[in-house]
Nucleic acid binder design. Sequence first.
DNA 1: CGCTTAGTTGAGTTCGTTCAACGACTGTGG
DNA 2: CCACAGTCGTTGAACGAACTCAACTAAGCG
Lengths: 247, 247
Amino acid sequence: MWVQVRKTVSCRACPLAKFNHFRAFSDEELAFVSGFKTGELVADRGTTVLLEGSDSAHLYTVLDGWGFRFKTLNDGRRQILNYLLPGDLVGLQSSLLGEMQHSVETLTPMTLCVFEREKMPVLFEKHASLGFDVTWIAAREERILDEHLLSIGRRSAIERAAYLLAFLYRRAKMLNQLNGQNAIPLTQQHIADTLGLSIVHTNKTLRKLADKKMIAWRDRGCAVLDFDGLSEIAGWTEAPSTNRPFI
Amino acid sequence: MWVQVRKTVSCRACPLAKFNHFRAFSDEELAFVSGFKTGELVADRGTTVLLEGSDSAHLYTVLDGWGFRFKTLNDGRRQILNYLLPGDLVGLQSSLLGEMQHSVETLTPMTLCVFEREKMPVLFEKHASLGFDVTWIAAREERILDEHLLSIGRRSAIERAAYLLAFLYRRAKMLNQLNGQNAIPLTQQHIADTLGLSIVHTNKTLRKLADKKMIAWRDRGCAVLDFDGLSEIAGWTEAPSTNRPFI
DNA sequence: CGCTTAGTTGAGTTCGTTCAACGACTGTGG
DNA sequence: CCACAGTCGTTGAACGAACTCAACTAAGCG
């Protein structure tokens, strides 16, 4: 289920560097980050990487694959909070605030870059620019959560679904994380738990989008056929963004 | 509507320092923050402090009073994202990511501490501990948004209302921000826009809580009479927290 | 005293839920 | 190679939670 791998990939050859929307490191930063990294982790599909209530000693950056963050109520009701894609920082909350308040599970096999959370203060101390980047990443996550909150709170079922799929498609496309069939690797249950809807109604809602030829189900995933159409239904236009940092 | 006041209160006599759940500054930090601060702002009740789409040059910390962050859809549907209380940082997102993606409005008269956002990099450069604190604050906001997302997505109307009021009461009590009647200063419209419900249904839901003697409406606000009862309905227990920083 | 704001309540409608069943596909063990 | 269980998507029917529309009360204020 879990495989811990030794430092196989040097930070110099970080797979994220090839995406030009990430900001580049200076040589100095690269040297520090290389030391900050303690290894890599490879997780199968369906693995619980972090568990609510636990107190992980690690901090991760996703290098490849899909995952999601979620919380559950006592009786099992689940809410997916956000999805994880390459470049996303995992476990920052618990690194700073203590025990995890949400869980993390993978949707595909995932490769993670592992850092020791004890070294965080050193990062801020010695490399202010990287500390700034961590804050930037946290602020970005906050902004995404704001959008999701607006969506769940105020959009209708079909608008929510359209927003979510447009949002995920955009991110995934940019990071080359669509599967062989050009699809987003999740089930209708995941979508239901993200939108705050029942699985039956989610199915009927997605059917409407499929009937409009905006999406299609293929190969364990959802293919987006009409990004503009979805954006229009959702009334959504993406916020402008500058080059994003990663650690 | 707006009043810009010169630096009337020295950081040495910061009104937030009296709350012992905030972490104390070192002398060195205090000196820097004093320079970072450019003044104070006093806003009336109902003032729009920051507007979605704008690009403010400032960053604020709430010193006194209540406010809220919100987003709206094109047709006017409004979603309240979170509430602002003393110690909260306002405008961090736009400081780092560019233009504001949400608005901020006051619920009571509010005093804000004003910083120049251009100086943020200097803060990270010269005072790593403060940079770390900013990240901490961002991570805390993220955690709160996670909770709200769970609530709106998966709790029933009465559970949502109970959660929100318990949550706000807890925060307000700790910061001594309940009004004369011991009430939270908001209207049912605010609650509706936070819970993602219509105002009519919000009213009927709050009525049920009032009938159970858990809350009461007084003096333009909602008084919490039975915190434990609300927590139980919501199935909510607060996450443990350490001393929190502020800037 | 009329005007506005905020909370309350009833009636009818709509959106989303629950229950239940079924088909397509995948993987597994006899 | 087939039987079987498990997962995932699909659909219909009945129900219920939340919505809209509409009207009314109480309090605050010029």
